[in-house]
């Protein structure tokens, strides 16, 4: 039996302990904002925050999550999350939108660690998130906008 919190709520999982966190979130908890894109930590569509750090849920066995705190796009909050969502909307970043939950989660984690990221910081933090629509140009601009909006 694995116990963890998901967006602040206590959860338990007693299925196969090898089950990736992604499928526990989606299949068992029916929270569908976190997406499947590759299953091998190559695309970042499944990014969640595990104990405050960005994590690819598709390669994280649920057994590793015991006692941890998991935040998904549905539950992410705080000034960085607000700034990112506002900046994303302001630039109409998403196209198909399928990868954007993961992009948002990676961007929020970046701003939590580096409030005023450089382009190189953005490359480092966001290169694990693939967007096949290639909205990268707006993602970069939106992260800068979000950082600027948090100043003062």
């Amino acid at each position: 039996m694995v116990s963890f919190t998901l967006n602040g709520q206590q959860k338990e999982f007693d299925g196969d302990p090898d089950t990736p966190l992604l499928w526990v979130i989606r299949d068992a908890e029916k929270l569908t904002g976190t997406k499947y894109g590759c299953g091998v930590a190559q695309c970042g569509a499944c990014t969640v925050h595990l104990d405050g750090m960005p994590r690819r849920s598709c390669v994280t066995p649920i057994s590793m999550v015991d006692g941890s705190e998991v935040i998904t796009v549905e539950g992410v909050s705080g000034k960085e999350a607000d700034a990112v969502k506002t900046a994303w909307a302001g630039l109409d970043v998403p196209q198909c939108g399928y990868c954007q939950s993961g992009q948002v989660m990676s961007a929020v984690a970046l701003l939590q660690m580096v409030p005023k990221p450089t382009d190189a910081d953005i490359d480092g933090a966001m290169a694990g998130n693939i967007c096949r629509c290639a909205t990268y140009h707006r993602i970069r601009a939106a992260i800068h906008n979000a950082a600027n909006s948090m100043e003062g």
């Binding site: 929270l31 569908t32 976190t34 549905e74 969502k85 909307a89 109409d92 970043v93 998403p94 939108g97």
Partner: peptide, 21 residues
């Protein structure tokens, strides 16, 4: 004009086929 489908694609509420459960 701002796009109509942006908001749900930012907060995880947009539903794709894979999300129908």
């Amino acid at each position: 004009l701002p796009k109509l489908d942006t908001r749900g694609k930012i907060n995880g509420t947009a539903i794709f086929t894979l999300d129908i459960t």
